[in-house]
Design a protein around this nucleic acid. Structure first.
Lengths: 213, 213
DNA sequence: CCGTATCCGCTCAGATACTG
DNA sequence: CAGTATCTGAGCGGATACGG
């Protein structure tokens, strides 16, 4: 049942034995956004073979990282408290990997859950606390998110809703977050399209969410 | 050259493409302690096949995580600045995995580098700042470390040296760090053997390095 | 539809031997 | 010492099929 081990006794080694297998940490990432059904997980990990997903769910359950939500009519997977403690790991990893992103290839997909976690990685609570509460509606690829920033708290949820600024963007939004592309130039060049609201708020967005390369 | 990808565009995904392969993050962990030769890395990862180590070193080099140290007579591997930015990831992962450690199996090894990183994970700078500067000489398994704490800074180096407290322990030292076993009881039961210095300092050690389960 | 199991082809990991 | 070469088998990816 225990994953193939490394023959070493230590914290990192143990962690990798529990969540180091291929796909495992991506499942954790999506569950950090919220409980998910089997099919939702499969949809959020487009290339995962169904047998691998089933195997990982079992292993992660045995490892105490996730569980099937009790007293729920349908089967729903959720993180255990211990699994939830992986949040700092996933955020740090996401921040690190974000800096290595180049422009996306055509076959690459952006899912709502992955984008949610990227936004959490890039969120600067200290900066946001100085700014007025703001709601953004963002459409990037297939992901449609409502992003609410209020003081030091960030809430990202799927779907649409009332927002101070609604915008659509290609994945070039990355360059806005990395600071390579100024907000006003992103709008001017069409990388970001303002759907409604004051376009000037995109600059606030870029200030709130920032990961320098 | 690029590792097998996940077909998704996002920070965590990209990170796992770069350092998600088996053994990769353990190599990074050891290099976070300092530059290492090929043979030193092999010794610190007892079960890694030599071809896999060679392959990982190439991939991590291509990923910009590490490089061969320039103008060095022998071949030495060291992290790039970008690779060094993985430190928070490794520390967080180590802290998480440490909590899932149970007692070690016989074939499991403790290496100096893995123990050094575990100590860094468990180090509580805020607590240490309130305590007097202290040097510990610890022998755990094959690892012999000199641990110097001064204010908020921690320095761990291999080998022996002048210390306020020198002790030898089996891996049961984990229970001291987790708080399951009080320092005085660890000494009384022989889990930790005081070689010289005041045994009472082990309590300070347990306060300085702590990861609750 | 949701969750699993089972097939197969293939890549990668593991073990060992060998070379500059 | 610092890798490369080769072989074998485990695990992944992909497809398909089956029970609730």
């Amino acid at each position: 049942m225990a994953a193939r081990d490394y023959g070493e006794y230590g914290g990192v080694t143990r962690a990798l034995e529990l969540i180091g297998e291929r796909w495992a940490l991506l499942i954790v990432r999506d569950l950090l956004v919220g409980p998910r059904r089997y099919g939702e997980l499969a949809a959020g990990l487009p290339r995962i073979p169904s047998n691998v997903l089933a195997a990982r769910l079992k292993e992660l359950q045995a490892a105490g990282v996730l569980r099937r939500a009790p007293r729920s009519r349908v089967i729903v997977y959720e993180l255990t408290p211990y699994g939830h403690e992986l949040e700092p790991v996933v955020l740090a990893l996401g921040a690190w990997g974000f800096k290595a992103l180049d422009d996306p290839r055509d076959e690459q997909v952006i899912t709502p859950d992955s984008m949610t976690m990227d936004l959490r990685s890039a969120f600067r609570a200290g900066i946001a606390a100085e700014l007025p509460a703001t709601a953004y509606a963002a459409r990037v690829g297939e992901a449609e998110l409502l992003i609410r920033v209020d003081g030091r708290t960030l809430d990202v949820s799927r779907g649409d809703g009332p927002a101070d600024l609604a915008f659509a963007a290609g994945p070039g939004i990355r360059r806005v977050i990395s600071g390579e592309l100024a907000a006003d130039r992103a709008i001017a060049t069409g990388v970001v399209e303002v759907l409604h609201g004051r376009g000037a708020l995109l600059d606030r967005f870029a200030t709130t969410f920032h990961l320098a390369a």
